[in-house]
Amino acid sequence: MNDPRIGRREWLQRAARAGASIAAVGGLGWALHGRNLPSPGPMAPPGHVFPDWSIPDAPPRLAIVTGRDRVETLHRALAALGGIERFIRPGDRVVVKPNIGFATPAELGATSHPDVVRALVRRCVAAGAASVVVTDYPVNDPDSTFELTGIAQATREAGGRVVLPREDRFRNATLGGAQLIRDWPILAQPFDGVTKVIGLCPVKDHVRSGATLTLKNWYGLLGGRRNLFHQQIHDIIAELAMLVRPTLSILDGTRSMMTNGPTGGSQGDLKDTLTLIAGTDPVAVDAFGATLLDRRPEDIPWLAKAAAAGAGTTDWASLNPIRVAVD
């Protein structure tokens, strides 16, 4: 220590270290220095969120089957449209989107009936579909809703796969030409690589929008605080009609919820309307479905908006529907 040379060497080492640390801190500080503050990320670019799943170059078809057994009427309706094979080809990856909104038993008619889900998934599997996914984003807690409605079990029995609406399965999307579906979370991941989509919905009263039919059923693909859209319910349903162009729309009006929709809660809200509608034009399907609720299509503004958006026609009779009665 008393040797000045040692002191000097020690000092030089120290100076080198000090210089190095100043250089390191300064360099890092220089590199990281900036005035940039986080700004909201870029909006999801507008465009097609989903492909068009309808069968190309096929004239719109509509089948109206009356009967008490919803499985039987489903088979008859599919047969009337030319068989499930017309829509599902071997190797197709299929999504069936039932209405699984509320954790209530199937008998209360607030959700799609598990019997018809089971039958439909079976038909798809039998037609050679590579995968059949059943998904929805319920209003109530997803896990319990899928189980309580019996739809999870029905799907598994039929060979389909239940996909729960996990947070990471939503993607922010902007629908081209849309005013509401802009940078909004959509349950999109279950539809990745899917080639056919079937909408399946019960016929229900809906206080705000007039009726829950197949087009309203796509509300289940909206994530986030979607209840904001109740301020513009008819516009959002029209945009949903632009968002999803399904291969097939099936409306189960075997037992319709006439009042207190969309949850109902008592058998008194239900009425045997004994009709199942299937078709490739969702607007026409829903326009006829409205009549089961004793409503005219004109009474339901979103139908006209969806038609104006090019999703189909409200004049269901113009499609020369095939009518079948099952006894």
Binding site: A18, I22, V25, G26, G29, H33, G34, R35, L37
Partner: peptide
């Protein structure tokens, strides 16, 4: 934040002087 924001870079002066 990953950013040495604006005038906070003056802290580098204090750091350097402290090192010395």
């Amino acid at each position: 934040t990953g950013v040495l924001y604006a005038g906070l870079a003056w802290a580098l002066v204090t750091m350097a002087l402290t090192v010395v």
